[in-house]
Simulated assay, not measured.
Amino acid sequence: MKLRQLQYVLEIYRNGNHMTAAADVLHTSQPGISKQIQQLEAELGFEVFARQRNKIVGVTEPGREVIAIAQRMLADAERLRHLGETFSKTSAGSLTVATTHTHARYVLPQVIERFVREYPEVRLVLMQESPVQIRELVAAGSADIAIGTEPEKAFPSLVALPGVVLPRSVVAKAGHPILKAKPLTLHEIAKYPILTHGHSGNWKVLGAFRKAGIEPNVVFGALDADVSKTYVKLGLGIAVLTTAAFSAEDDRGLRAIDASHLFPSSTTYIALRANTYLRGFAYDFINFMAPELTPDVVKAALIRPSSGHSGEV
């Protein structure tokens, strides 16, 4: 049994059981991977992957145990490779953070400012994508940490730790009648054209209306809060945004009223690969954002077998 064979197993699993995609990621040939997997299965005495007409269609029950063990073994191997570097050079290296627009724009600036100040030798890379895409980047090993709200898609290979809670507000142009609504209700909001934003935000906002049996007049769905606010200023409607996305100082001409009693909040999750190796400065980055997520808490959460669920804790 070779670590390379276990790496092949994990990469196939991470790529949706597509051997060709795994071969592309590993820069090797599909026949070569297939041969190594067959040798591993012959040594183990059972099939890791379920097949139909020689095509992989899933993971067998014992195969799931192989994946869990492979994750731990490869993570330990990575720790061994980095052990000397950890003790000799604790404040240098690189950290790639995948995040969404809202978090990059409104949640992370102070965290990044502090991190850059305390770790000037660390190369910090910020990648901006949707909640699903940022977790895909971490699952594929292209990013170390994903920071964003919970996506509708599950990621069994990741551990997601809850961080900042993001309540919602209604944002309107100064003088808009919605600002005088007391109490603020879903029926009152639904009287006006609505601009939504984001990915997880859209389904949570619209879900609140559906639950109440109300059909809102959504006229625009932007991918970021800044675009939504631009069109609110133009008088196209009102917006339902995370409260963190509004600043009385920066958003002159606009007003915000709390709507946390009407719409569910979004939780910011810090997503990491299970059983992964993190440098000390990565633990600090997480702790700067969520003080309750100490290195010991994060390490304890990361050490777990693959369980087939999304990993939210």
Rank of each mutant, 00 (worst) to 15 (best):
A282H: 06
T276F: 06
V165D: 10
E43L: 04
Q38K: 13
E312Y: 13
A271G: 14
L74G: 03
K233E: 11
A190P: 09
T243I: 04
L195N: 00
V232F: 03
R273A: 14
V232W: 01
I303Q: 15
V165Y: 00
T28E: 07
K211R: 13
P120E: 08
G253D: 09
K229Q: 14
A274Q: 15
A143K: 05
L195A: 03
A160W: 00
H82V: 01
V171A: 09
Y277F: 15
R210L: 09
I178H: 07
V111T: 15
E312P: 00
L195G: 01
L137F: 09
V122F: 10
D258Q: 05
R72L: 10
N287V: 02
E113W: 03
E43C: 01
A160G: 10
Q5R: 02
P291M: 02
G163A: 13
I178V: 15
K191Q: 14
T196N: 12
L241K: 04
Q5F: 00
N54F: 06
A244E: 14
G308Q: 08
V25Y: 00
K180N: 12
P156V: 08
H176F: 08
R53A: 14
A301I: 08
P120A: 09
T149S: 15
S307Y: 03
R79F: 04
A139Y: 03
A154E: 14
E43M: 03
F263K: 01
A271I: 05
K173D: 01
A274C: 11
E47Q: 14
L80G: 02
S247Q: 10
V164L: 09
R114D: 08
T149H: 08
L179S: 11
Y277V: 12
T242C: 11
R51N: 07
L26C: 06
S130P: 06
S266M: 12
I214A: 07
S310D: 15
K153C: 01
Q38L: 09
L195C: 02
L44N: 02
G253H: 10
I178Q: 06
L262A: 09
R72E: 14
Q38I: 06
G280N: 15
L186M: 07
G207Y: 07
I257S: 07
P305S: 10
V313H: 08
S200F: 06
V116I: 13
I270P: 02
G308Y: 09
V298P: 07
K229N: 11
N217V: 07
I134Q: 03
V122G: 06
T102N: 11
L108W: 01
E113H: 12
Y269V: 05
L95P: 03
L80P: 00
V125Y: 07
T96S: 12
I189P: 04
K180V: 06
